[in-house]
């Protein structure tokens, strides 16, 4: 078995992992950190990413919740809710929430397409490394799932106030999140460099 020398990201120990990868997971012998897991084929990921992006389009204008208090109606989309915060003068909160909750996941998906489509067409991984670096930086800041849970919490909070209707936007958001999540799980960054590793 040809092995490749690498180091654990979390404890720094030098480990060898097989050069030709089978479908196993590889973990650090000292700290149990994940060293490598096999991702899905790029074409699957691209399909899923495109699906997720398509789902995001209706999200921008479908209301997530309708609230009806004594005949007064109020409904808002995900963007509108944050827009109100912006209008109240809390620009920073609106900006960060907008970025983390909505835009970063979308940007991540777009970057992923920018990474995977060229690779699929035989480009060298170095060409897309900038996109990958950005993707990597953002991955910690994508908070779509937090936003999703917060919608549910808000629903419970608003429950007593009046009649609450869940809008289509909410379901869209759930589907978007699921596809987004699958996309990110399927994608294993190590796969970008896999062919390259042979040269080493």
């Amino acid at each position: 078995m040809i092995v490749k020398e690498t180091a654990c990201k979390e404890c720094g120990v030098i480990v060898n992992i097989p050069k030709k990868i089978n479908f196993s997971q590889y973990r650090c012998p000292r700290c149990n950190a994940l060293l490598y897991r096999r991702g899905q084929p790029f074409s699957y990921i691209i399909t899923m990413a495109v699906t997720a992006l398509l789902l995001f389009v209706p999200l921008t204008f479908l209301p997530i919740l309708d609230l009806d208090i004594m005949g007064l109606q109020s409904s808002s989309t995900l963007f509108e809710a944050l827009w109100m915060v912006y209008k109240d003068g809390f620009y920073f909160i609106a900006f960060v929430a907008m970025m983390t909750g909505l835009l970063i996941p979308v940007i991540m998906l777009i970057l992923l397409l920018f990474i995977l489509v060229p690779l699929k067409h035989g480009y060298r991984p170095e060409k897309v490394s900038l996109y990958y670096r950005l993707y990597e930086k953002m991955s910690d800041w994508g908070m779509a799932e937090v936003y999703l849970i917060s919608i549910i919490v808000s629903m419970v909070k608003l429950h007593g106030m009046g009649t609450l209707h869940i809008g289509l936007g909410f379901y869209m958001f759930i589907f978007f999140f699921i596809t987004f999540y699958i996309t990110t799980v399927w994608f294993n960054p190590d796969d970008i460099w896999l062919d390259d590793a042979v040269d080493n």
Partner: peptide, 28 residues
């Protein structure tokens, strides 16, 4: 780490949704 953001999102959503002029509004 990122789950701490929950409350921020909740506040943002409530502010966005509860805008009933004189009857009730929520501000950040």
């Amino acid at each position: 780490g990122k789950w701490s953001m929950l409350d921020i999102f909740v506040v943002a959503l409530m502010v966005g949704l509860v805008q009933f002029k004189n009857l009730a509004t929520i501000v950040t």
